[in-house]
Design a protein around this nucleic acid. Structure first.
Lengths: 292, 292
DNA sequence: GCAAAAGTGTTCTTCGTACACCCATGA
DNA sequence: TCATGGGTGTACGAAGAACACTTTTGC
């Protein structure tokens, strides 16, 4: 079967620059080419466009086929149309970039072997993919000023320093920890994520008796915003008791106790998620910019 | 003659969104289609890509052919690949935008009639060109934050309020005149353009004699930055004399005179041009942003 | 003569940035 | 116990934003 046109037509293909973030550095997803040209070299996932799909649909399909990734949000980088960029025939490629969490891992359907590379350790690439990668990085740096784009690279909850490392990895600069946090929080698009706690870990017996009966369950943060009296009716837990995240006081028994729950081990720091409403508002208004 | 491929290939075309600025508002250059499809509707200049040219080369060539415009700086907007965007066959279009001064006028080689339209009065467009225009406007708004892009839309010398109107037209907002000027000047990319003056328009006779002999030719602005003594050796012109743009004192004659040249009529306000060195520096560093 | 635009500075507020110590966690 | 990272606030300087009156120009 063949297709004939009165004028010469180039082939049209798509390429996807998929960025991931592992909490440390920026990564990019590559596929080892199993066939000529450039056999054995690494390249971006992608392939030829069908006549019944748009470039974006093509990119999604190829990504799905070659890396099992199912990505909704693709951003177009533009068309790459160098006359000799593909030795087989004239190919115009429409490139996209995507941001994912590397945990949405890449099976690799074996036919093509997909692998994550740290952005600084990207090997030699096939075609003009080095050039495309540079463009993608430039675009990413530009976009991150205008949109809180980075969140798509992080899980649903993340620590402030993960977020900071992401920005530092993308922009290639270092920020002051406190200023970064301040700035991010004052945008309003972040909210504290619900944390999971262990079951009650320790039980303290209170040595000071209170005349009043009272009981309270809440988080340390809340306690600090209310007066000790209001919370404990005159009973004051010790400093070390106050420091636990969750605390359960029952002061109406003969020997009042304070039950404390420590934060789950293995997780460090406060977790944030992003506030979808504010995020959408920013995207719509488009008058929002991250600046550092 | 025909061209045959083992797989179906789309056609690849380019389209150019050419923006102009007439000192008042943003304009866009359109071509009336003389053939089907969409005969009689307006569209962007553009056409099919040849096999020996890149998309950008194609766009430049088509622009030259259809509008006689010879434009160096084209910025790619991206590929538009809707499956049914052209009723004839599958066409993927790579769109560009360009900024010109409408004075670089458009002959229109008659075959295709080219015309400028105010951005608010753009008629119905062929294909998906409405969509492309929206994208181009968005991109222009984004770009103007990062690059002093607007200068390509203005002549070699322009007044501050022309520049301001341009920014307001592109961004769709209003700025405070004084703050805009301050901000623009402190970027350093502007410099006062050389102005042309009429021949000496008036001659004042000085009524105060000076003992010293002295002569001076300079602009009012300079005078203000130096002491009266330094400039005039003790002779002080009157306030109204000081206000002329150019002034020529010769104080060494018996009756000293001050010759003044008024600004050429028909031109209002101070003219600026942009400082190429600083401009290039900004473009290179890319750490510069216009913000208002 | 009259209306529209150009020229000009200051104040207040907001935002950016620099900076240090203590405590908790995990090895 | 030791090293690493998390949590927290303040003070200074720079930049943005608001604001009015006089002169010049063009009609």
């Amino acid at each position: 079967m063949s297709y004939t046109y009165p004028y010469p037509h180039p082939a049209v293909a798509t390429d996807c620059v998929v960025f991931g973030f592992d909490g440390k550095g920026l990564q990019v997803l590559l596929i080892r080419r199993g066939v000529e040209p450039y056999k054995g070299l690494w390249a971006f996932p992608g392939g030829f466009m069908r006549m019944d799909e748009t470039a974006e649909e093509c990119a999604k399909r190829e990504l799905q086929e070659e890396t099992s990734l199912n990505i909704q949000m693709l951003k177009q980088l533009g068309a790459f149309s160098g006359v000799h960029r593909d030795p087989r025939e004239r190919v115009v490629s429409v490139a996209f970039y995507a941001l994912v969490q590397p945990s949405e891992v890449v099976g690799g359907d074996d036919a093509s072997h997909a692998e994550w590379f740290a952005i600084e350790e990207v090997p030699q690439l096939a075609f003009d993919h080095d050039f495309i990668l540079r463009k993608a990085m430039q675009q990413l740096r530009k976009d991150i000023y205008f949109e809180p784009i980075g969140f798509e690279l992080l899980g649903s909850a993340f620590t402030m320093s993960e977020l900071q490392r992401l920005y530092e990895a993308i922009l290639g600069v270092r920020f002051d920890r406190r200023n970064f946090e301040k700035k991010m929080l004052q945008t309003g698009i972040l909210q504290l994520a619900e944390e999971e706690y262990d079951d009650i870990a320790d039980v303290f017996t209170c040595f000071e008796q209170s005349d009043e009966t009272n009981s309270f369950f809440g988080k340390t943060k809340e306690m600090r915003t209310k007066s000790i009296d209001e919370l404990f009716g005159g009973f004051k837990p010790s400093d070390s008791e106050m420091k636990f995240s969750d605390i359960n006081c029952s002061l109406n028994s003969e020997s009042p106790t304070i039950e404390t729950a420590k934060r789950k081990p293995g997780r460090k720091g406060r977790k944030y998620s992003f506030n979808k409403d504010e995020y959408d508002r920013f995207k719509k208004n488009n008058n929002f910019r991250f600046e550092f």
